[in-house]
Design a protein around this nucleic acid. Sequence first.
DNA 1: TCTGGGGTCCTAGGACCC
DNA 2: TCTGGGGTCCTAGGACCC
Length: 399
Amino acid sequence: MNNRKVEVNERVAEGMKSSVRVILHVDLNSFFASVEQSLHPAWKGKPLAVAKDPSSPKSVIVTCSYEARARGIYTTMLVGEARKKARDLIVVRSRHDIYRSVSRQFFDVLRSFTPLVEPVSIDEAYVDITEIGGLHEAVLIAERMQQALLDTLDLPCSIGIAPNRFLAKTASDLKKPLGITILRKRDVESVLWPWPVIEMYGVGKSTERKLRALGIETIGQLATFDERVLVASLGRVGAKLHARANGNDSNVVDPEAAEDRKSVGSSTTSWSPIDDRMRLLQTLERLVENVSKRLRTLGRVGYTVTVQIRYADRTQTTKSETLAQPIGDRDTLYERSVALFDESWTTEPVRLLGVTVSELVLKEEAVEQLTFSTYERYAKEEEAKRKRAQRRALKEEGS
DNA sequence: TCTGGGGTCCTAGGACCC
DNA sequence: TCTGGGGTCCTAGGACCC
């Protein structure tokens, strides 16, 4: 009996009992640097780094080409350090507007294969190809996708093929640049289990520490550990990591997920901490303008404003406020941000200042709500606010 | 190697309502 | 009138990712 037939039968059987899917994770290789190289072909094959301010040695590198990596350059390295390490390094100013627009084209290329595309960040997406081919055509589809991205956008990518998001994501990391890697459920034990837990997507330094306290060092140990103990120690994260270590991930590819942005923010770090209120407010104003502009482009407004302050000693605080009506315009946003800033600033020198607007809604919907149910909501919120203020006053009186 | 800016999701406590 | 349980919203902070 021919193999293909067996495979197809297997697939049908699998599909009937557990709705097995075929998921791709597509990851653009050193995205910003690749965009710059495609716009300046003379830079191809050369060590190239992208930084916010190439003229400042203290600016940090955001991305760099593989040629730069080969010379020991890495993301977050200071421009000054990098130039010392590679004398012939080309450092270019980052141009986020261009990257965002190329990113949209990237997703469009993926959508020309299937609508089941979920963008997850500026340079990566999940694609569910179950309906357009399934497992036995997956490699072919991945190859065509990779070629299409090279042909139309001149961008290299790595693709992971797997039955779920987590494994697809892990697979795309295995071969860079321009890799195509399949990771089956049955490969989990031999491939993933020997790795130290820190290599796993979703495990950072803090979780690594907690896992080590439980005697867990490898993904295999995590997979076979008592899940109840993990949950007791790590909460929901424990259950999620335990599932992943066993190669399981039930999250589906949801094209709508990226549609509703959760927040828009802007922050800036100054090399020498600032303690002058006027200068801090000027910075705040710049941040507010940036956020407001981007909200306008997205056609969104938000209910919650958050101001973030990081002091010279790296301690950090956030102060946020949820409003009765969503805002987005520069003036109101600035006014609320200043109020939040003044409430939380200790007058200590500030290293980082940030403004974020969240609980976003479409502007039209916000207007609709206003004519509809918002009056009610507004009245309720105001009432709650008054009560809160009253209580506060009472408490202060008492003390 | 302690250095950025953009995000998402989770948790926990307090307030409030039913 | 007192007491309790359950659910939701708000806020602050933590962890993680690219």
